[in-house]
Design a protein around this nucleic acid. Structure first.
Lengths: 338, 338
DNA sequence: CTGAAAGCGCTTACAG
DNA sequence: CTGAAAGCGCTTACAG
C-alpha cells in the first residue's frame, strides 16, 4: 500500500494525497475527506524513508552519549525521548563509550542518515575533528546541541551545568566542617564540565587559604574502577586525606567501594561529597552529600532547543546553564577526628 | 556529492560505483581502485536513506523498552548498542513508559521507517494488538525479538530469564531462615516475567507447606512509588510480615525507602530479597540479597538473534533463557525475632 | 484547488 | 565485467 494505491482508490493524484497527508491547506475539504477515508480504511502509513529522500531530511534526531549506563545519561536520555516523542520525532542513539573513534564514526553517518539534528556529549573538549564535523553539520542545516560538555572553539547551542559553582560549594562546605586535608578525584582534563569541577575545588581551597597538595589531586576517567584505585592511592598516603570530593557519580561509586572495603564509615572515619546524586543511596538514607542537578530536565531542554532551531534555522544559538544544588546529608562531617 | 558525481569523476556508471561501494565482486580490480580513489578523495558517503528506499530496508533496528531509567533496561540497552555497532547497525530507541498506546504508536512507525528488525519488551502479555502488529512485521520480513517479557500466543524469538526459579530460590531461602510470614510485592499480572516471579513465590510456599496469606501478596506496577505505598500497607497489617520478596529492582527501591523511613534495619528487623541487583548498594556493601542475571548479556544475545534471522530469514525462532543466581548478602536474615 | 512530471540518490535485472 | 534504464515512494514547482 503506497501513495499511488491511495490516489487511485480515492480517484485523485498522488500530489493531492501528499497534500492531504501533510496538511497542506491547498486542498478542498471534500477532497480531503475523500482521501482521508481511503487512508483510514487502508491503514496507509507513508514511507518516512521515501519522504526523507525527497525532502532531504527526516524526523530522527541523533543522540550520542559516552555511557548510557551512567544514571546521569540514562536520566537525560529519558528526558530526551519524552520530548522527542511529544513532537513526533524519533531518536537514533549511539553510545560512544568515551571513544573518539566511535564518536567520529557516528558523526560521519549522521549525514547519510539525514538526521534532523544532533544532541551530543563530546568525548574531548579539545577535539578539533569532532568540532569540525559538527560545524559541517551545522553548515548543512543540521542543528547541534551539546549536552553536559562543551567543545573548545565551537559555537553551538548547549545545555551545561554550574559545575564550578557546585564543586566550590561542596569543597567550601568540607572546609567549613574543619577539613584541611581535602582530596579530589578529578575526571579527565579534556572534559570541560568535569574539569570545571576541579577548578571549583581549587578556587575553594584558595579562597580559604588552604594550600593545595599535589598528592591530594588524583585523576580518574569518569569510571568507577579507576576511581577505586585512586581512592586506594589516596588512603595509602603517609598522611591520607580526611575528606574527598569526587567529580562524578560513577567515580563516587568507585570511591565508596574502596572506602567500604576498608571498613571506613562515611561521615565518621572519612568525609565525602560527590557530584550528582545516586538514587539507591538516597532511598536507603545512606548519608551521602551530593551536588545535584536535574538530568532529565537537561535532556528535555536540549530537545526543545533543537526543535526551536529546526523551526527557526536563523535563531540564535544559546546556552542554558542548569543550576546545581548542594544537598547535605551528613557525609561531609567527621565524627572521630583523625 | 552523490553517486553520480563519483561516477562522473571516476569515468564509470553509477551502477559500477554502487557495486564498488557494496563490495560486489562483479567489478574488475582496476575499476574498483579507480572508483575507490575518487570515493576517498571526495569523502563520499552514500545516502543510507536512498539506499533504504531502493532496497526497502535499512540498517536500523528498533528498540522499545518500558523504562530506560531502570538499570536493568539501561544495562540491556548498553549490550544492544555494543553488538549493533560492531555489526554496523544503528539503534532507534523508543521509551514506551509502560503505556500501551505509545507502544503501538511506535510499532506502526516501524514499517514506515523500514527498520531491519525490532527488539521489544512488551507492556502487556495479553495484548492481542501488539501481538498482531508484531506478527505483521514478521510476515513482512522484519524479525522480532522479545526481551525479558513474553507475549501470549505469539511465536517470536525471545531472551527471557529464569524468573520462577529465581523467585523460588529466594523465597525458599527466606523459609530456610525460619520465616513464615513472607510477603511479596508483585508486579503487574499482565507482565509475564514478573508474574512468573509470583509463581515462584507461591510454589516455594506450597512446597514448604506454608499457607499463603492474601494480605501478604500486594501488587505493584514495576515502579518505585507504588511499591513504597504497598510496603506501608504490609507493615501496617495487624500482623506484619517478617520478610519481603520484591519482584523487580525499582520496587525493591520503593520498599527499601519505606522500611528505611520507618527506621527498620534490613536483615535485622525485617528480611528482604529483591529481584535484580542494585549496583550502588552492592558497592557500599549494603547487605541486600538479590536474584541476579546479566542484563547486558541479555541485550547482546537479543541483537545476535536478530542479526542471525536477518542473515537467514528461514531460521528457526528460538528462546534463550538466561540463568539467574541467588546472591545472599545477609538481608535474608533476621537478628531480632519479631 | 488539482494534476503531470521531474527529482531526491540509490540498486539491480537485463542486455551486451 | 559494465552501462542504460527502470524503480523504490514520496514532494513540489509549475501549469492550468
Amino acid at each position: 500500500m503506497n501513495i499511488s494505491d491511495v490516489a487511485r482508490k480515492a480517484g485523485v493524484s498522488t500530489a493531492t494525497v501528499s497534500r492531504v497527508i501533510n496538511n497542506s491547506n491547498l486542498v478542498k475539504p471534500k477532497t480531503r475527506e475523500k482521501v482521508m477515508k481511503v487512508v483510514e480504511e487502508s491503514g496507509f502509513v507513508p514511507s518516512a524513508i521515501a519522504r526523507g529522500l525527497s525532502i532531504q531530511t527526516t524526523s530522527n534526531i541523533g543522540v550520542i552519549f559516552p555511557d548510557i549506563e551512567n544514571p546521569f545519561f540514562s536520566g537525560a536520555f529519558y528526558g530526551i525521548t519524552k520530548i522527542a516523542e511529544q513532537n513526533q520525532y524519533h531518536v537514533l542513539f549511539f553510545n560512544s563509550d568515551e571513544n573518539m573513534g566511535k564518536e567520529q564514526e557516528f558523526l560521519k553517518m549522521v549525514e547519510s542518515q539525514h538526521l534532523a539534528g544532533i544532541i551530543i556529549t563530546p568525548i574531548n573538549h579539545f577535539s578539533a575533528e569532532t568540532r569540525e564535523l559538527l560545524n559541517e553539520l551545522e553548515k548543512k542545516g543540521v542543528p547541534v546541541v551539546l549536552l553536559d560538555r562543551d567543545l573548545r572553539g565551537g559555537k553551538f547551542s548547549s545545555v551545561m551545568a554550574e559545575n564550578e559553582k557546585g564543586a566550590y560549594q561542596a569543597v567550601s562546605q568540607l572546609i567549613l566542617e574543619g577539613h584541611e586535608r581535602i582530596a579530589i578525584i578529578e575526571g579527565s582534563p579534556s572534559i570541560r564540565s568535569v574539569y570545571e569541577r576541579s577548578k571549583g575545588y581549587r578556587r575553594a581551597m584558595d579562597d580559604h587559604e588552604i594550600p593545595i597538595r599535589g598528592e591530594y589531586m588524583v585523576r580518574g576517567n569518569q569510571k568507577s574502577d579507576l576511581a577505586y584505585r585512586m581512592t586506594s592511592r589516596l588512603m595509602n598516603l603517609p598522611e591520607p586525606p580526611t575528606a574527598i570530593f569526587t567529580c562524578n557519580n560513577m567515580m563516587t561509586l568507585g570511591c565508596l567501594r574502596y572506602l567500604t572495603e576498608q571498613g571506613l564509615m562515611i561521615g565518621q572515619d572519612i568525609s565525602l561529597i560527590g557530584f550528582d546524586d545516586i538514587e539507591a543511596l538516597r532511598v536507603i538514607d545512606f548519608k551521602l552529600s551530593v551536588v545535584e542537578r536535574s538530568e532529565a530536565e537537561m535532556g528535555r531542554i536540549a530537545v526543545r532547543m533543537l526543535l526551536d532551531r529546526l523551526k527557526a534555522p536563523e535563531a540564535e544559538r544559546e546556552t542554558v546553564v542548569m543550576p546545581v544544588k548542594l544537598t547535605l546529608r551528613g557525609s561531609e562531617k567527621l565524627r572521630r577526628k583523625n
